[in-house]
Computed example of a mutant assay.
Amino acid sequence: MHWIRLPLADGLHSKQAHADLPDGTFEREVGKEGFGGPAAHFHHKHPPTGWLSFDGPVKPRALDFVESKQQVSSPWQASVMMHNAHCEVRWWRLAESMPALARNSDGDQLLFVHDGVGELFCDWGHMSIAEGDYVVLPRGCMWRIEVSAPLAILMIEATEAAYRLPEKGMLGPHAIFDPAVLGRPLMDDAFRAQQGETETRVIVKRRGALTTITYPFNPLDAVGWHGDLTPVKLNWRDIRPVMSHRYHLPPSVHTTFQTDRFIVTTFCPRPIESDPGALKVPFFHNNDDYDEVIFYHKGNFFSRDNIHPGMVSFHPSGFTHGPHPKAFAAGAAHAKKETDEVAVMIDARDPLDLTDAAFKVEWTGYADSWKVKKD
């Protein structure tokens, strides 16, 4: 229950957030708890991203994962790009079928298939995976992938935690995506065919260290199961974004999975707001409680310049950010009627540390990309 509470105001301001801004002003949101807590909306004479230079740990960064070419057969050989005590992000290129099973004993594993096709086998059975699929693998699940076309996979570990579906409140349980669209492994003919007496290794990750367990048979040998825990698969094409033609909704509305200390959000193609007074691009904001990571999967991200599929932006907590100048101008002119981007966002409650592998593929001009170029 929410009591009626009237917000405070001073000076020249709009009646509502993200709509009908005073002429010539730029709105900046300063909020708590992502976009769900108390907030203040300032109206500035200049864009909050109109800096001359940027130096220090709050500097925004862009990483080009496409430039990371290493192909490895195990997910635990894939480069860790960023991490904290509750989240670990890896970039994995898999060109050939995995020779051993993998098991994560540190937390649930989320795979997002950026490219490629494969067959995933696990304790629960078999399912096909392809571009655009999320796959949630419960902690302790044994699994392997047979490659049909080389795979590029974004891996997001919920360290010492589990993935859940977000609460949808008044939208109802079938909004954004109906759980009925979730795929799951099946104990089908392909699963039974891969069973046998072949010596098989399982590479277990626990507390970041690897243990190899060797069996004289393939331990994916279950003949049946029952219960309410299973891996699930969701393709971004089955997500139906919430939208409003009169109000630019915050990114948290598009939450796909959540854990104790971070959320995973999916940006999918949608109509752009059509009301003349509504913002048409993301609002400038200080997200001072979260680090924000966006993996750009497909299309042209409508609030960014110089970003191509396979790149990642990293906006540390404390960094005021928003649309690039050309994107802001295009939004003001309502030049586009719909977005065509697909992107995966991680909002982490705890600061993320970038690794040497991430800095090796950094585009160092990212902070300067907000500068307005003079004719």
Rank of each mutant, 00 (worst) to 15 (best):
I4F: 12
L8Q: 09
A9T: 13
G11S: 10
H13I: 06
H18G: 09
D20V: 13
P22F: 09
G24R: 05
G24K: 05
T25C: 11
T25E: 04
F26I: 07
V30R: 12
K32F: 09
F35V: 04
G36R: 12
G37Q: 05
P38H: 14
A39F: 12
A40I: 12
H44L: 15
P47E: 07
L52S: 09
P57K: 10
K59G: 03
P60Q: 09
E67C: 12
Q70K: 09
Q71N: 01
S74K: 03
Q77C: 00
A78H: 02
V80R: 07
M82V: 02
M82P: 03
A85V: 02
V89G: 01
R90W: 01
W92P: 02
L94T: 01
S97H: 03
S97N: 00
M98Q: 15
N104G: 07
G107F: 08
L110C: 15
L110F: 03
L111P: 00
F112V: 03
H114T: 00
L120T: 00
F121T: 04
W124V: 01
M127T: 02
G132L: 01
D133I: 02
Y134W: 02
P138W: 12
C141M: 08
R144N: 10
A149R: 09
L151D: 00
I153V: 14
T159K: 13
E160R: 14
E160N: 15
G169C: 06
L171K: 05
I176R: 13
R184E: 13
P185F: 05
P185Y: 07
L186G: 11
D188C: 08
D188A: 06
A190E: 12
G196W: 07
G196C: 10
V204H: 08
R206G: 08
R207D: 15
R207V: 11
F217R: 11
N218Y: 07
P219E: 06
G224H: 08
P231T: 07
V232R: 11
W236N: 00
P241H: 04
V242S: 10
L249D: 03
T255V: 10
T255Y: 01
C268D: 00
C268K: 05
P269W: 02
P269G: 04
R270A: 14
P271T: 09
I272T: 14
A278K: 11
K280R: 15
V281I: 11
F284E: 08
Y290M: 06
V293H: 00
Y296S: 06
K298D: 08
F302V: 06
H308G: 11
P309K: 06
G310Y: 06
G318Q: 09
T320C: 13
A329S: 13
A333Y: 09
H334R: 15
A335V: 05
E338H: 13
T339M: 09
E341W: 02
A343H: 03
V344Y: 04
P351D: 05
L352V: 07
D353K: 09
G365V: 12
A367E: 11
A367V: 14
S369Y: 08
